[in-house]
Design a protein around this nucleic acid. Sequence first.
DNA 1: AGCGGCGTTCAAAGCGCTTTGAGCATATGG
DNA 2: CCATATGCTCAAAGCGCTTTGAACGCCGCT
Lengths: 341, 341
Amino acid sequence: MNLKQLAESLNLSQTTVSRALNGYPEVREETRARVLAAAQAANYQPNSRARRLATGRAMTIGHVIPLAGKTEMVNPIFADFLAGAGEVYANEGYDLLLSIVSDGEAERAYRQMAANGSVDGVMIQSPETDDTRIALLRELGLPFLVHGRTQNPDGYSWLDVANKSAFRKATNFLLDLGHRRIALINGQENLDFAARRRAGYAEAIWSRGMAPNPDWMRADVMTEGFGYVAASKMLDLAETPTAFLVSSVIPAIGVRRAVVERGLVLGRDISLVTHDDVLSYMNNDADGPAFTATRSSIRGAGQRCAEILIDLIRKPNQPHVQELWETELTVGRSTGPAPAG
Amino acid sequence: MNLKQLAESLNLSQTTVSRALNGYPEVREETRARVLAAAQAANYQPNSRARRLATGRAMTIGHVIPLAGKTEMVNPIFADFLAGAGEVYANEGYDLLLSIVSDGEAERAYRQMAANGSVDGVMIQSPETDDTRIALLRELGLPFLVHGRTQNPDGYSWLDVANKSAFRKATNFLLDLGHRRIALINGQENLDFAARRRAGYAEAIWSRGMAPNPDWMRADVMTEGFGYVAASKMLDLAETPTAFLVSSVIPAIGVRRAVVERGLVLGRDISLVTHDDVLSYMNNDADGPAFTATRSSIRGAGQRCAEILIDLIRKPNQPHVQELWETELTVGRSTGPAPAG
DNA sequence: AGCGGCGTTCAAAGCGCTTTGAGCATATGG
DNA sequence: CCATATGCTCAAAGCGCTTTGAACGCCGCT
């Protein structure tokens, strides 16, 4: 059933039927009711391809997800972010176009989306400190929102977590517990969030008159295996850390494995603070928080990002939206006073 | 730049330019070369909205992802499955439309996709033993492929892992090690894969003249927290299991946490076999396989599923494709002979 | 009676492509 | 030299909507 047939069956013009369905005011209420009833009865749905061509709007938002590292893995936080954003998109009538590309192919993907008009805007995630995508999208004139930000966060819209202050707070928390040898297991430090976390960590250490020790700092794609390997190596050093500060729950699980394997007890022999994105399947709260953590829901961020982006699409030429979310530090069972000695 | 302008700039008709770009034979090679060069120079990309309307094809495949459980979580395996499928889609020129819906909203999402023609086919994941989506999509006439299958797997195309035999093998492996008290930490058993795994587990136990013990069997959404809680309860029973068979690496990590917390050592005091979907960020192989596991790459499945579905879309009226993948059992460090007594 | 304004409806143009059917050369065969 | 085939190109129709601009009937006003 298409609009023409529906209009004919009602003895109305396509114009009137279209207007009735789309809520335009120049249609008599009685007529609108008739149209709505007939549409309902016939299970009429306007063809989205035709509608998109006619309106010039794609009613679609693009997410380009780059595969990270040599092993091309998908950052698991994307799933929860998408869940949050997708919910808002659905409510607002937008589709979500997902493009998963190898590292380096992202630019081509954005250019294509802009050129062939398949999306009205795009979401950028996990930017590098000096991310080239921002200049590109500005050039392409495609509305976009960045989840995270770059070193120079001016001139575009973003939503970010206060990474630096979160890791400063977490480091201070460990320092206050008496820890002096604190390790940092970070994400890839070309990514802005990781660079800021490292800065917060270093700042706290410097502020106590100490210097960060490179032996106790590692950064890589945040897998369970990386956490395990990084912590293992540090725990085999002559001078081992007494505490770990970890960038995500996933590598934190690897750290825990390395700790336990050495017969050490988390929260007693070794302390661990992690950033917790509140991943749904990695709930840190079953039976009380296992890890002491700075937390900020990635899913909540996805929702808010979607709201902002849609607003940016609907009302162009508005000032840039920039939102910074503070994190809370939840004390769990993975931290305790530094062991004597 | 649109087709009309491009054609004018070349002094050719839109017809010829369109044909040249789309590789039709009735165009002189010299002309085609001219057109291609001009298109390249102008960075011309056909407007996808117009193309879709004209061809009647959406060049898009839909994935409807239901949020599971009361907490509405996203099954983390979806990310890796999407990565695999997305790669193939991109190569074949298809877009990926992602719809994330609350449980129970899935039917509406499929109906809408079918009615408004936004997709050419859909992928179904994690079917229930008697999944209603299959009848629905058949009724809607929308091509689809099921990753997994239902109790009655006839009359539609699917790709599945041999779940029953995998868990039979895994259980026998534990039985052969002398374990007699084997627990099953399963996914939600309304899902077909979980039901089959349970059947394989039970079959192996019955075949040794024993009976499965309900106290040692739990099933729920496969989170780390669920694994932890389920294993904790079992380890606090008067008669505790000596081995755990777990449906995914994620709850297996929770089981490990519960085991370690009780001062027990995995692979010595307690054995653990898990199914490993080879999630990229949960690599079970950093430093040798931590868990003994039946494994089958979810990402590989995504790739193959995408290939099959595209083929189904391109050539309708072909016989159903049904593919069953066997798993391999990799012995890691989480299993050992049953402790004496 | 004539006029403007309002509420309602319509025919037709347009979105930017693909595809059909026709047309015009040029080549081929009888 | 005509008839037919072949290679290449074109104008125009069509995909199913939205949106513009016009038209129609009716009302109240002067």
